Simulated assay, not measured.
Amino acid sequence: MIKYIGSKRALLPWITGTIQSIHHQVPIRTVVDLFSGSARVGHALKAKGFYVISNDLMTYAYILAQALVEADARTYSQERVQPILDRLQSLPPRQGWFTQDYCEKARYFQPKNGARIEAIREGLETEAGGDPLLRAILLTSLMLAADRVDSTTGIQMAYLKRWAPRAHNDLHLDYPPLLNGPGQALQGDALEVAAHLEADLFYLDPPYNQHSYLGNYHVWETLVRWDKPQTYGVANKRKDVQERKSPFNSKREAREAMQTLLGRIQAQHLVVSFNNEGFFAAEEIEEMLRHWGFVRRLTRPHARYVGARIGIYNPRGEKVGRVSHTENHEYLFVATHSRRVYNALSDHTEALQLSLF
């Protein structure tokens, strides 16, 4: 999976274990992941046997969900896909606008890998042959390969002054971790999509502060759109980063957006992921969930992303400011109409948290 500031990699056992504990009390068949991001949670839930519907507004996130949630590995087996990846891997490198913008003007990748990315991306559409899921699988392989040779701390608001050691490696395409079974990927505004979906359980991991995911992962958006965008600043961000805004990234608008969203969800159970660096205090989220009937708050400490731990540097390589803290608290809020689920979570929560520390 790609490096992702909102990634729940370390929290997956906690999240999936909580949802499974609900399932043990009241059978859960369908789960909606409304802000799917890197698709890590949706992928993990599909692996547990749930039917997952993943949604995100970002195009790169939609591509990841198509591959990791919707695609069925029985249809897109390694035996079928790997020869295509091998052909793409063997294409001669070609330097063009992507190499210039993201390897020379900005230094996200070594130029040798930028030229490989460019050649593969140009050849990928023909190899996909009009099959949208195969296209998504090939693009996911390319994103994962590029992520392994990038030169960032995990977000694309900036790149490292000196090349990361991994950036010197050669880009290599691998078969993505596809899973057997069906799923569904959607691309849309969560506020609009939520009103048209029904599921047993919704999982929400909304943006929680002013930093947009498009701004943090603009290179992936460009890689999948392949639209030669206008860019700005030292980081060569897409110009539309300044225009495509989410109300969840606005302290003034986030509360109304969250309350509107919660009012549109049709489900028996809701799991909300948040942390103490967000716009809302834990008590505020609990208050917004009261109309669901029963609410449990689960808490655990979690290390902040690596960029926050090493500090912030200006373009001259000078450290700017101080790191205020290296750890935050992650929350899971479980809202349910079922008293049985609510009561069962009391004992399960303590046992699950103890097993994770």
Rank of each mutant, 00 (worst) to 15 (best):
L356T: 09
I28T: 15
H302I: 10
N328T: 06
E118S: 05
I63C: 11
G6N: 01
P176I: 12
K161R: 13
S7G: 15
H43K: 04
T336R: 01
T222M: 00
A235H: 07
T75N: 08
Q110W: 04
Q95K: 11
L223T: 02
E286Q: 14
A44E: 04
A344S: 13
N216P: 00
V32M: 06
A73R: 13
F248R: 08
T326S: 12
T140N: 01
N180G: 12
G49W: 09
D170G: 09
N249C: 14
P111L: 01
L160Y: 09
I137T: 05
T18M: 06
D200N: 09
R297G: 06
K228W: 05
T152V: 00
E125C: 01
R166F: 05
G42I: 04
A145L: 06
S54Q: 03
D170C: 03
R290P: 08
Q268I: 04
I53R: 03
I63R: 02
A44N: 05
A158P: 02
M157K: 11
V320A: 12
L45F: 11
P206I: 03
L45G: 08
P176S: 09
G6T: 00
H302N: 15
T222P: 00
A61K: 03
Q78P: 08
K239F: 06
T30S: 12
P229Q: 14
L179P: 06
A47V: 11
D131G: 06
L354Y: 08
Q110R: 07
G233T: 08
L88T: 08
W226A: 02
S324G: 12
W14L: 11
D147T: 01
S338Q: 04
A254C: 07
I310K: 01
G130P: 10
M288D: 04
F357N: 13
Q20H: 06
Y51F: 15
S38E: 01
L34Y: 07
Q210I: 01
S338D: 12
S324F: 05
K319Y: 05
T99I: 00
L171A: 05
L356E: 10
G188W: 09
P92V: 01
V219T: 02
L85P: 14
H348K: 07
L85V: 10
K319H: 09
V234Y: 13
H269V: 15
A235N: 09
A44C: 09
D200L: 06
A115E: 09
L68P: 08
